[in-house]
Design a protein around this nucleic acid. Structure first.
Lengths: 232, 232
DNA sequence: CAACAAATTTTGGTATACCAAATCCCCTCA
DNA sequence: TGAGGGGATTTGGTATACCAAAATTTGTTG
């Protein structure tokens, strides 16, 4: 459970609250209150907030309260554009450099997703999905790439979480993951690139739909106080 | 000169010292000493160090002194691989979305580089070069992409600075920049991608050469104390 | 009653104090 | 003489105090 350092633990807590929606987009995050809430001082809480800012989950404004980020549709689609490029590159490099063990690991994650799709709840499902994509990036044997890719995935976690609730996604997601893995196994760069592109393309579609359906998620940024949300 | 916040100003100072080599790779950066040196307290100095860590210029180790990063050749080439992908994407998007004014701005930067190559010193030259590449990323109208791309450029600044001293680079760099701009002007995605790929490919070559020539820059991480380097 | 302004409170930024862990130095002992 | 250990010191991590700038409230006035 516990990450390494205290600020990371705090960041983990806050991140969870944000991603679950207990801290609504636009809500201010006050150092004192939240620090007191968790029984720590402002110093590590400050650092935790910076960590989340680096991940794009909160927005820092000089001399003002940091707020939970509320990205616009364009910002989200921009990020996904970058993710596509990063993951296509990951796939291309993984085809060249991934070990058999790493590909087997990716396959295992795919199996876990496929076999437990209905067993897992939303969060567990997304955690496996994230691990799957991160494993691909790691298999590129390019640490910088894997790191940047992971940062973008985390940043998009909530947006993806809000979309992709639809049931018909299930079969498609699993099938596309399968195509990616199979491309890796046969070391077919073209197939991998194609599968990744198509997979993330659909992600972009479903997120756009979600924004169209619930435009309140976009900018208006409901000003709700962040206090007391941490005790849950 | 002055960035917005105090930590950013401090980071700016430290960054300069690192990139100029006054703080050697592997040297520890002690919060107290450096803070005292600049006449500030540890708190903003800490934040400044985190900023530089985010940029990859310093390496944080829990409960230990942060050290100036000393990337291996592989780490540098990995980063350049990512930069290539990011900048190719930038070019592709810029061809679609850049305004004429933005392309003109890029052209102006190219002209400045071309006409003042011998007038500028190394640092000025690199600053213009960086602005040139950043302007391309900005012309993509994808903020996340521009930000990530800029972060990588900053991260590679020192490595590029250490390489690329050779005189014969001059003509090639200027010519390749010209090809990129001309591709943008004619909205030719293929030409832009080709030019960027070739341009950064040569960068990779010259950096590899530089590492082969001066392997001390690689890992050994000369343990030199960081103090007093800031007064310069 | 509305609107502006001053005073109060709130909040982030900075400085400082304290602590525990890591480092360093020197001494001992094989 | 070199390796190991123990104490002193350095150093990052955390808590807290203080300050200045925002934000908020309140009181006054047109």
């Amino acid at each position: 459970m516990g990450e390494n350092t205290l600020p990371e633990q705090i960041a983990h807590q806050l991140r969870r609250e944000i991603l679950l929606g207990n801290l609504k987009p636009g809500a201010p995050i006050k150092e004192r209150d939240n620090a007191a809430e968790l029984g720590v001082s402002r110093t590590p809480m400050r650092e935790a907030i910076r960590i989340l800012a680096k991940e794009g989950l909160v927005e820092l404004r000089p001399a003002r309260s940091p707020v939970v980020a509320s990205p616009t549709l364009k910002e989200v689609t921009d990020c996904i554009t970058v993710i596509v490029a990063l993951e296509e590159l990951s796939g291309e490099l993984a085809v060249q450099h991934a070990t058999e063990a790493e590909i087997a690991e990716i396959w295992k994650l795919h199996e876990r997703m496929r076999d437990n799709y209905d067993v897992y709840d939303h969060i567990e499902r997304f955690e496996v999905d994230m691990e799957f994509h991160m494993a691909i990036a790691r298999a590129s044997h390019n640490e910088a790439l894997a790191e940047t890719h992971a940062a973008y995935l985390r940043r998009m976690w909530r947006a993806r979480f809000l979309s992709a609730r639809t049931r018909r996604n299930r079969e498609r997601v699993v099938r596309q993951h399968g195509e990616i893995v199979s491309g890796l196994q046969s070391r077919d760069a073209g197939q991998v690139a194609m599968a990744i592109h198509s997979h993330l393309g659909h992600l972009l579609d479903s997120i756009s739909e979600a924004f169209a359906g619930q435009p309140e998620t976009a900018r208006p940024a409901e000003e709700q106080d962040a206090n007391k949300a941490l005790t849950a």
